[in-house]
Write a protein that binds this DNA or RNA. Structure first.
Length: 646
RNA sequence: GCCACUUUAGCUCAGCUGGUAGAGCAACUGAUUUGUAAUCAGUAGGUCGUUGGUUCGAUUCCGACAAGUGGCUCCA
């Protein structure tokens, strides 16, 4: 007999070789029906695998991440079976679970798959699922596996096998489909009740663009139709929050074919948001000892040769224009310009740290396939600054920058973010990264030290650094689950030397400063894109393009409405009177849809008492208030940049 | 840049197998003077993304290009 310890700490005894599924059944039939896999001593295994010694056991269902992943991975096998029946001779690469479903990469040879095929595949998958075929595991020797796939002519699985060692290789078969797979899998295909294949896309083999492009099919499955319906409804909801849709509806920005892809035209409403963000940034940068600078949009080729950007960045810069025998580039970054400002005057250690900030417009020739609404554009406003400091000052400066990030996150209510310490890859020194192994080690340690000493949670990733030094990227998630890099905070040990930047030390020697590149708000484009989704277009009062709309009950109260609006304007509140000849219900509806935070309804009663009937966006009638009292409250709410109303 | 898909009025979308387009909302005009999420009526608005081809005839079929969307690669 063996002892099985369950998650609640209880211990049960079973004969040796009992499977997780047997144990589930011994607890209850209902549980057994839901079991997808099991975690045995920390390892996720098929529920059918026998347990040969005493162990900790957790039965995994749809409610466990690992259960869900097993379900989706098994669904990928089911899809592969369907694909094989419709595209005989197809070769498969890998089919992992992902955040919302699964995919399988495949080589279809000369054939192509389009969206119509997805419907056919879906139908086939449903048929196969109904057969309720069992996923059967078989351990196999490496030689036998190689022979099997050599005979099949499957170079992809042979490639996978080359990385595996004999004794750990297994095949899984369900119905007519057999795949090289480490598992685990769910008990049988019948558990998959609802199937939706979402898209077909190309994906480079092993993620390398030099390799062949495989066909990738994405799908998602559920244990019931109800859950699939809910998932689809959630996607519909997410669409409503999409910044591209909201940006259009709220008159934030537009793009135009004649202007060019990735080039944003900021409309008046969007420009107000930009100006409010800049106001915030200027306030906090002034308080933190930054100085503002302004630099041109173009520079001679030589500047980028000196900075070292050209060999790394040329492909993502707009091609140069030639004037008077000189090549000029549109700037893709502000740093070289700022370095020249540093170099323009002799600097002493007493001048450091020197913090130069600019809302410069940069131009990056992003690949056409990368462009994406406001999140990825070709003309971007960076919330940029460069801090020149000594090694001794580094800790404090880097810490202060981090603090600024956190302050902004608090204002905007960003609570989900990850600081990602991005390091270089030693094998790419001299190609992707400047060849200074010692300096890399030193600065990476400096940055890590700041994060550890300030107790900032972070993850480390290799091969994500800038060419001139390590960085911290801040990953955030928009309300509809889109992940992207918002801010970046980079250390640069390379450009200072390349530009021969120097300051005079206390003992009268020349020393190269360390440089911190930082952009806590990232770019206006990406940040406003994020905010639109974050707030679902309902900006807090201080950011809202239109803060207050005054709604007269009828034309008779227009003069009073205008006098209220004038008072608001005098208090620097952005407001407008809805002077259309419409009923009050219509005015309210339209103003609600434009997501204006406050509506002031004025009619006979309000006019006689010098009051307004206040209505908050999405919250309905808030009662009647004296005008001056309300204005004082709004001014305070705006000044404090309150996220929601007091 | 690569793979797949999409492109019809300002917006959201109809338009069966080829016979030069239609709705709702928005806009404009008029009536209505309105009390907390759509008052009524009328008018105007489109060389059906661009460009080649097939055809007696193309919004519809085929090709190229452009832009957009979902991915891959890249990235703030």
């Amino acid at each position: 007999m063996i002892d099985i310890t369950l998650p609640d700490g209880s211990i049960r005894q079973y004969p040796e070789g009992t499977s997780s599924m047997d144990i589930a059944r011994s607890i209850s039939e209902g549980l057994a029906r839901k079991v997808l896999a099991a975690r045995v001593n920390g390892q996720v295994l098929d529920a059918a695998r026998p347990i040969n010694q005493s162990a900790n056991l957790q039965l995994l269902t749809w409610n466990d991440t690992d259960g869900k992943n097993t379900f989706w991975h098994s669904s990928a096998h089911l899809m592969a079976e369907a694909v094989e029946s419709i595209f005989p001779g197809v070769k498969f690469w890998v089919g992992p679970p992902v955040e919302n479903g699964f995919y399988y990469d495949m080589d279809l040879g000369d054939r192509k798959m389009n969206e119509e095929d997805l419907a056919i595949l879906e139908k086939k998958m449903n048929e196969l699922a109904k057969q309720n075929n069992v996923y059967v595991r078989k351990e196999i020797s490496k030689n036998d596996a190689i022979n099997y796939f050599t005979e099949k002519g499957d170079e992809y699985k042979l490639d996978l096998l080359s990385g595996l060692t004999d004794g750990e290789i297994s095949f899984y078969t369900q119905g007519s489909f057999t795949d090289l797979c480490r598992g685990p899998h769910i008990p049988s295909t019948g558990l998959i009740k609802a199937i939706k294949l979402t898209s077909v896309a190309g994906a480079y083999w092993k993620g390398d663009e030099k390799n062949k492009m495989l066909t990738r099919v994405y799908g998602v499955t559920f244990p019931s139709q109800k859950e699939l319906d809910e998932h689809l409804a959630m996607l519909e909801e997410a669409k409503k929050r999409d910044h591209r849709k909201l940006g259009k509806e709220l008159g934030i920005f537009t793009m135009d074919d004649d202007v060019g892809p990735g080039l944003v035209l900021w409309m008046p409403n969007g420009t107000i948001v930009i100006e409010e963000l800049e106001k915030l940034a200027k306030e906090s940068e002034n308080a933190a000892g930054y100085k503002r600078v302004v630099t041109p949009h173009i520079a001679k080729e030589n500047l980028y040769i000196t900075s070292g950007h050209l060999p790394y960045y040329e492909d993502s810069m707009y091609p140069p224009m030639e004037l008077e025998g000189q090549k000029y580039y549109l700037k893709a970054m502000n740093c070289p310009h700022h370095h020249k400002i540093f170099a323009a005057e002799p600097r002493s250690y007493k001048d450091l740290p020197l913090r130069l900030a600019e809302y410069g417009t940069c131009y990056r020739y992003e690949q056409s396939g990368e462009l994406f609404g406001l999140m990825r554009v070709r003309c971007l406003h960076m919330n940029d600054a460069h801090i020149y400091c000594t090694k001794d000052q580094f800790y404090e400066e880097f810490r202060a920058v981090n603090e600024m990030y956190l302050k902004y996150f608090k204002i905007f209510g960003v609570d989900k973010y990850v600081m990602r310490l991005s390091l270089h890859s030693p094998e790419k020194l001299g190609q992707k990264y400047v060849n200074e192994p010692e300096l890399w080690k030193e600065t990476e340690a400096l940055v890590r030290d700041v994060l550890i000493r300030t107790k900032t949670p972070f993850v480390e990733v290799q091969d994500e650094a800038a060419f001139y030094g390590p960085k911290i990227d801040v990953q955030i998630w928009s309300a509809i689950g889109r992940e992207f890099t918002l801010a970046t905070n980079q250390v640069d040990f390379a450009q200072g030397r390349r530009f021969k930047l120097e300051y005079t030390t206390a003992d009268n020697k020349g020393e190269t400063p360390l440089i911190i590149h930082r952009a806590p708000l990232g770019t206006h484009e990406r940040f406003i894109g994020f905010l639109l989704e974050h707030y679902a277009g309902k900006f807090p009062l201080w950011l809202a393009p239109m803060q207050v709309k005054v709604l007269p009950i009828s034309d008779k109260f227009l003069p009073y409405a205008r006098s209220v609006a004038d008072k608001l304007k005098k208090a620097d509140i952005r407001c407008e009177v809805d002077d259309r000849n419409e009923k009050i219900g219509k005015k309210i509806r339209d103003t609600e849809m434009m997501k204006v935070p406050l509506m002031l309804v004025v009619g006979e009663k309000e006019m006689n008492e010098d009051k307004v009937a206040v209505r908050r966006q999405g919250k309905g009638d808030q009662g009647t208030r004296p005008v001056d009292e309300l204005i004082a409250e709004l001014v305070y709410e705006i000044k404090e940049r309150k996220e929601t109303e007091a």
